[in-house]
Design a protein around this nucleic acid. Structure first.
Lengths: 334, 334
DNA sequence: GGATATTTTGCAACCGGTTGCAAAATAAAT
DNA sequence: ATTTATTTTGCAACCGGTTGCAAAATATCC
């Protein structure tokens, strides 16, 4: 019913190879032949079948896009950027939702069976072993938002979370806060651990600063809110560095419920700078993570790996910067 | 390098057909043969290649999931539910982002070239012609969140938007508002048109009610906010029915900026009941759209169509209900 | 114009599977 | 133990393409 290569060949009165070649760039075909074939193809509405083609070329242009982060609004931006960018370079995302799974095996096999050309693991909460499992199967992998230090075998694109933690500490110190805390995402996430590490290291350089930390169960509004309500049972710090914007927004909600004001009573700084954080009713001061650059770079890197599968692994880290909005008190005049 | 059917056949000392059959349910293989083959397959770590298989079976289990809605947080929930549900029934979503495109042709061709088994169009803002284009290519299509009346050729799953508009009008009337307005999404979207239609029809049944309407450019926070700020230049209505929750949240932000209170000065009711609407700091009164049921049903329907491609088209509509939170004044005691 | 270099074309095998059909093996019936 | 019915197996063709190789067709050179 739908036209195949052979149909076109017959109609044009040429061999199937000739038809195949006119649809393969870089193949040797004369102008005359090309015109003849293209005419026949147009008449029949022929389009080459990518899957059949992939059998011999061993290229599907399919990319597994796996994530477990479907409750953090920034991931809508992430998916938007990824799908658009992948489309731009002629790749197609096969989306895999790992929300419940802990075992990579199943999705690994599935992606393998679909012969994806590569896998993008977009998550800072999946364990590094997960990305490594793909690497072990010889699949090109890039772990976007991953931790570069813990899996030098896989390509990582993202930020230096330790540095980001440090940056948060510095901003709080600059604003004269003396009692500060970290309210992180899941304790097992590498992003949480690293941000905490940088935060504490920086604070340790300064005398007379009180510090503490705790964790939310996941990167979500409710988890952030819940943890802050719990903390409010005891003594609160003067300012909180939250592991992520959506957590911060949950925290802001809890603070409001406690009848406290931001930034008068408590300061909050987030991380990510998702679109929502700039909403006038939220106006979250946060550390901007340049996700657009991170994602463009991830896709670029993936595209490069397709041509050079054994490329030596690298970490691409992008600098963050503070976005001042309304949830920290101003820097005092010196 | 990776084991193929033939490798397994050789190692087990049987024909390739035998191997193929042990991996095809319902095929005729003796227990002895099955064991022998499975042993060999396990030794080699063999997994059948789905794409090669699809060539003869004409089933890829790939489903095009196309949307243009990457700025409305509810779509993160939508993608979460879709991907999970599709995975559950053994289907894989090939995600297509149509944000910029107006022309279906390109993605249509691409999905065709990947031999997707079906297409789910998840959008209320893509024109019905879009879904029809897939149908015309004989692909199973379900238009989730579509308008059932305007394209009886394609399967639609969602709500009755006219009814939802009516419901919004009724709630406002019940609360004694006399001057009400509709602030819709893009004017061209069928969802906008239908919600407005129901809203006005219902109001027309009641005397002494003033009404007006206008549209935001897209379903997004900023668009809602912008439109509300524009309206605030003139005379405001007592209550606004917004075409969608994210629009409502933008509207709330604008109202706050104008120094007005909700619900004292102005009432707001949204539609969707996305997770964020229940956040304590937002507490939006809204019409709940049962997206979980809608999506489950969409996937179920798609699965059914794979077995029966010429299934007579149907519309599956789910009832909405009002979720009372804090953005409308209470119903007065009678 | 003929010899040689270069480009274009078709043949046929292959990518990794599935499947209709007939032969071989096994089970059931007499 | 035969004969007959049923199940299991392998052969070979096919799904829709690509590609190495050698032959055919063109182009280039003297």
């Amino acid at each position: 019913m739908v036209a195949t290569l052979k149909d076109v060949a017959i109609r044009a009165g040429v061999s199937t190879s000739a038809v195949s070649r006119t649809f393969t760039d870089g193949a040797s075909v004369s102008e005359k032949m090309r015109r003849k074939v293209e005419k026949a193809a147009a008449d029949l509405g022929y389009r080459p079948n990518f899957l059949a083609r992939s059998l011999t070329t061993r290229r599907t242009k399919l990319i597994g896009l796996v994530s477990n982060n479907f409750h953090n609004p920034i991931f809508l931006e992430v998916f938007d950027l990824f799908t658009r960018r992948l489309q731009d370079v002629g790749l197609r995302p096969l989306l895999v939702n790992l929300s419940k799974e802990t075992d990579p095996e199943h999705s690994l096999q599935m992606l393998h069976q679909y012969s994806v050309d590569g896998v993008i693991v977009a998550s800072s909460t999946l364990p590094p072993a997960f990305s490594k499992a793909f690497r072990d199967k010889k699949m090109p992998v890039v772990n976007t938002f991953g931790r570069y230090s813990s899996s030098p075998e896989v390509h990582v694109v993202g930020i230096d979370n330790v540095e980001a933690g440090r940056m948060a500490a510095q901003s709080l110190l600059a604003r004269g806060y003396k009692n500060v805390a970290f309210l992180g995402g899941p304790e097992a996430a590498t992003s949480t651990q690293d941000r905490l590490k940088g935060f504490r290291e920086e604070l340790a350089n300064h005398a007379g600063i009180q510090t503490s930390h705790s964790f939310a169960e996941e990167y979500s509004f409710q988890a952030g809110r819940k943890e802050m309500l719990r903390l409010a049972q005891g003594n609160l710090a003067e300012a909180y560095f939250c592991g992520d914007d959506v957590l911060s927004i949950g925290v802001l909600s809890a603070i409001k419920d406690e009848g406290l004001g931001v930034p008068e009573d408590i300061g909050v700084i987030g991380l990510n700078d998702m679109e929502m954080s700039s909403w006038e009713s939220i106006a979250l001061t946060t550390i901007h993570q340049p996700i657009k650059h991170i994602i463009n770079s991830s896709v670029e890197l993936m595209a490069a790996m397709l041509d050079e599968p054994d490329r030596y692994p690298e970490a691409r880290l992008f600098p963050c910067r503070i976005i001042e909005r309304g949830t920290l008190r101003p820097i005092p005049d010196t």
